[in-house]
Simulated scan of single mutants.
Amino acid sequence: MADPTYTPPKVWTHDAENGGRFASINRPTAGAREDKDLPVGEHDFQLYSLATPNGVKATVMFEELLEAGFSDAEYDAWTVNIGDGVQFTSGFVDLNPNSKIPTMLDRSGDEPVRVFESGAILMHLAEKFGAFLPTDHTRAEVLSWLFWQVGSAPFIGGGFGHFYAYAPEKYEYPINRYAMETKRLFDVADQRLARSQYLGGDEYTIADIATFPWLAPFVTGGIYNDAKTFLSIDEYEHVGRWAREILDRPAVRRGRIVNKAWGEEDEQLLERHSAADFEGKKI
């Protein structure tokens, strides 16, 4: 056990022995650790991801575009197992210097364009296809909720999720601190969804696509052990209504299993190159 009376040194240094579950990959430096290219498929859009909440944003967006009839949104999705450090290979770092999933290469124009950060990927695709992002006066509302989600995710994941479920020791202060913030964020969403069907208003948009993968797993009890009970998630009835409605969308059911590398085999799709890849999968 770490000393609860820990006093920070004058100058911090990295200790590879600490860090718990992610100690083997976390370092205080950026850049490639291995010279290796990424696989490339035939479609204009190449997605390198994992079915974490941030990764699901991108795959759901692609599947929603295809569901809406945008055939040019066909994509190749490649699983990046962050536990194995694939995000630190030279090919991945060339696309995302921050070494985080998801990242994407758009080859549909005259020059290839890299897009990293999940919110940027959603905006890029929404603007490219003219879908799920309004152009009227409600655009600002949608973007406000999108960036609300992007800004709040670290409190839920790296904050609550890490200290409650992943940290090698359990300490009361950080768990209380981030449990409080996570519940506050749920209350923000719940109050908004009491007044509108979706976060941005009456239409389903990238604000919902971004937020759903973070909030819905708490509603279903599929994230951070027994976090649903610990945080009394059933209190947020409007978030629950919204999450269940989105869970029923065919594109969401497909997008949730793309690049998924855990759970039942019929709920995993490590690579996605066409709609036929979903055959035999539980969606």
Rank of each mutant, 00 (worst) to 15 (best):
I101K: 00
P213V: 00
G161N: 01
T138E: 12
E63S: 02
A216V: 14
I156Y: 06
I206D: 00
E235H: 15
Y173I: 14
L47Q: 04
G109I: 05
D44S: 04
P28W: 08
K260I: 00
R272T: 07
G109L: 13
F88W: 08
D3N: 09
P4I: 15
A189S: 11
D84P: 11
P28F: 04
E267Q: 11
A276P: 05
T29V: 09
R139A: 05
E117C: 07
T89A: 03
V239R: 00
S144P: 12
D266M: 06
V93D: 01
L270Q: 08
A77V: 02
L193D: 01
A276V: 12
V252F: 01
R139W: 08
L146P: 02
I209C: 06
E67L: 11
Y166Q: 07
D84M: 12
P217T: 01
V142K: 02
S99K: 02
D248G: 09
I206V: 07
G151P: 03
D110R: 11
R253W: 03
G161H: 00
D202G: 13
R256C: 12
T229F: 14
A251N: 05
E279S: 09
L270R: 08
D72C: 13
F160I: 09
I175G: 01
D84N: 10
A165L: 07
E67P: 15
R249E: 14
V142I: 14
K281W: 02
E34F: 15
E117V: 13
A207S: 13
T59H: 02
T211A: 12
G161P: 00
R256N: 14
K36A: 11
A23E: 07
D106P: 01
D208V: 03
N96H: 10
G159W: 02
A251M: 12
E271G: 12
G20R: 04
E181N: 09
H273K: 06
E271L: 10
D110L: 11
P154L: 07
V56N: 04
T52E: 03
R107H: 02
K260P: 00
N18Y: 15
Q46V: 09
D72L: 08
I206F: 04
A227K: 00
Q87R: 01
A243W: 04
G19Y: 01
P9V: 04
M123H: 13
A210V: 09
P9L: 06
E64V: 11
V258R: 00
G221R: 04
L95N: 07
A216L: 03
F22M: 14
S108W: 05
L269H: 03
D136F: 09
R256V: 08
G201L: 04
G221H: 05
S108K: 12
D15R: 08
N225D: 12
E117L: 11
S71N: 14
S49C: 02
Y173D: 14
F116W: 06
P134M: 07
L270S: 05
H43F: 03
S274A: 07
E169N: 13
R33P: 13
A2M: 09
I246F: 03
F88S: 03
N18T: 13
E117M: 05
W214D: 03
D190E: 15
A261Q: 05
I82F: 01
Y173K: 15
H162C: 11
V86A: 07
A68Y: 07
Y166D: 07
E172Q: 15
L125W: 06
F116A: 04
S144W: 10
T13V: 07
P97F: 08
A2D: 11
A16T: 15
G240I: 05
I209A: 04
H124N: 13
V113A: 10
G255S: 10
